[in-house]
């Protein structure tokens, strides 16, 4: 009885600390959430006003200013680039996990380096090349640019999922006389489905959050959601409420992903080094 009492007290203590930390960490997000509904005059009232009459003005402005098009652009661009990456990256990840190749280590390092390269370094040559061949402000241009960090990420992380698959199934299928394509289609890809989905969703989120490429290589035609946020700093002042609305909308997919993918996020963000 005594031990169970002390263990329930320690549960309460440690849970309390963790919850407190989570509340402190998440408070800014909560605060921005409330700003979506705050009338302008109470937004930065002194002293801080905790209670207010909610308004939908900011939402109305966001729709009026056409931000749903930015949302659509973001969605289209991320889907396009992620789809393409899954298509060409999956066989590569499998090959890297299963076969011996010449200069494999060097190829790896090249892939890793293109993932890690600071985006600012890439955006300079990209901008100049694109301005010469007319790819600025186009979906194709940004889709290609996103491949530098996302294709390499996808190959690298999916490879760690491939390595978890037992090789015996493929060997058995080969003994049955299945062709390589059949083995890929009927054995490897189905088993790899969770890994593919998890990695692709992470790619989608990275593209969704991306700012610098979209800002420098995009324009009026291709203007993603993150790029549209600074637009709300207008000559008449900063539209904080509208910024909060757009910011919170951009958090929706992220919120969905953290709950659905939680086990795979650590693996993704550590390039497969830590299996969550």
């Amino acid at each position: 009885m005594q031990t169970s009492d002390s263990s329930s007290r320690s549960t309460l203590f440690w849970t309390g600390i963790t919850v407190l930390y989570a509340v402190v960490v998440l408070f800014p997000i909560f605060w921005m959430g409330t700003m979506m509904f705050k009338p302008n005059e109470t937004m930065f009232a002194r002293p801080t006003e905790w209670f207010f009459t909610p308004t939908l003005d900011h939402f109305a402005y966001v729709i009026e200013a056409g931000f749903h098009w930015n949302l659509f652009t973001s969605f289209l661009l991320c889907t396009l680039s992620t789809g393409l990456i899954v298509l060409i990256g999956t066989p590569a990840a499998y090959a890297f996990a299963r076969f011996e190749m010449k200069a494999k280590d060097d190829l790896f390092l090249f892939i890793l380096a293109s993932r890690m390269a600071p985006p600012v370094c890439l955006v300079i040559p990209f901008y100049l090349i694109y301005s010469q061949i007319g790819l600025l402000d186009s979906f194709l241009g940004l889709t290609l640019a996103y491949m530098t960090f996302n294709l390499s990420f996808y190959i690298w992380v999916l490879r760690s999922f491939c390595r978890d698959l037992p090789v015996e199934l493929e060997e058995a299928a080969a003994l049955e006389g299945w062709s390589r394509l059949q083995i890929l289609r009927r054995v490897v890809f189905p088993l790899l489905r969770n890994g593919i989905v998890a990695t692709a969703v992470l790619c989608f989120i990275f593209a969704w959050n991306e700012f610098l490429f979209a800002f420098m290589l995009g324009g009026r035609t291709v203007e993603t959601l993150p790029v549209s946020i600074p637009k709300l700093i207008t000559a008449q002042g900063v539209r904080w409420g509208e910024m909060a609305v757009v910011g919170m909308i951009s958090l929706v997919p992220v919120l969905a992903v953290v709950f659905v993918l939680q086990r795979h996020i650590v693996r993704g963000l550590t390039m497969g080094a830590v299996k969550g």
């Binding site: 989570a22 998440l26 997000i29 959050n209 946020i229 992220v254 939680q262 996020i265």
Partner: peptide
Amino acid sequence: LIPLLFMPAMMAPVVVGLL
């Protein structure tokens, strides 16, 4: 708690700046 604590790392850096 775990998914919620992933939020800051997964959200757009622009939104982090805004926050």
